[in-house]
Amino acid sequence: MTGVTTWRPGLRSWLTLVRCEARMVVRDTAGLVVPVVLPLLIMVMNASSAGDQEVVAGRSALDVHVLPLVFTIVLASIGLINMPSFLAYYRRTGILRRLAVTPASPVMVLVAQMVVSLAQAVLGIGVAFAVAVSAFGARPPVDVGVALGVAGLAVAAMYGAGMIVASLAPSPNSAVAIGLIAFFAFGAVGGLFGGTAALPEPVARVGSWLPFGATVEALSAAWAGASVDASNLVGLVVTAVGGTVVAALFFRWQ
């Protein structure tokens, strides 16, 4: 009996798919520019005054408050808006359905899109931090390792929430609309519009559990060298795991 050799995509196939995804992202001018330029503008608008206010451990308000907010905006806009819209577009145009009957499964597209999205997030954060350091004297976190760990959790949480959007949105336009609603809803209770001190205490507490507020607060703590609140970490983990479970149950390839 002759055995049948099953072809599996190799490294070259993966790299080709990642390059194709990168080209798609680059061609989407708004999706490429907004996560980089908008946070940068917010940072520049607040840096002049915040950079002169020392808060703790030699870190200024720019370091402890503005930069965590800017980095969170980058991650949230990519995870909640950009990535789901691309996946919804691929499903709507039948790309995922066609891939499902080839050795290059739709999961490859999902992984490639996440890789490209992560590269875009690194670019946005890198540009903002480089400008903050060179132009306004920003300093790195007191606990760099903690900050990197929080950033990794934040990426997983934002992508988890974004996968829920991609699972439920019937079209690319609806994915953008739902993503924008989620972005501003999370941001409104997480410090996007001027901190959470003015919010009712129960609302502020909920905001600290949701991915936007949890990321801002945890990064702020890492920058100041303080202990990260356990509720922030739990909120990020729950969002990441919950988003993965919901996506596995409800994501439609066609």
Rank of each mutant, 00 (worst) to 15 (best):
S49L: 15
V25F: 10
S49K: 13
L99D: 08
Q120N: 08
D63Y: 03
G79F: 03
V111P: 06
G145Y: 01
I164N: 01
G242F: 01
P68F: 07
W253S: 08
A100P: 05
N232D: 09
V241C: 06
L11Q: 09
E21I: 00
V133I: 13
P202Q: 04
R92V: 01
I181M: 09
V26I: 15
G51I: 09
P39Q: 05
A135D: 15
R27L: 14
L210M: 13
V146D: 11
P68M: 06
L192A: 04
T239C: 11
A230S: 10
V36P: 03
E54I: 15
A76F: 02
T244F: 14
R59M: 02
A204Q: 14
T2Y: 15
S174L: 15
A135R: 13
V238T: 09
P9H: 01
G126V: 09
M114P: 01
V246M: 00
Y89G: 15
V150H: 05
G187W: 02
Q120Y: 02
L32Q: 06
A222N: 06
A128G: 14
Y89V: 08
L69A: 11
F251S: 07
V144Y: 12
V238C: 02
L41I: 13
Q120M: 07
S227C: 00
V115D: 00
A57D: 13
F186V: 03
M1Q: 13
G58F: 00
V203L: 14
I78Y: 07
P211S: 06
I78M: 09
L38N: 09
R92D: 12
V116C: 05
A132F: 06
L41M: 13
T5G: 08
L17F: 01
M24T: 02
G137F: 02
L87Y: 09
M83W: 12
V246Y: 01
R139P: 05
V144F: 14
L67K: 10
P103M: 00
G145R: 01
I73S: 07
V101G: 09
V109F: 08
M163S: 12
L148G: 02
N232A: 12
A185Q: 02
L41C: 11
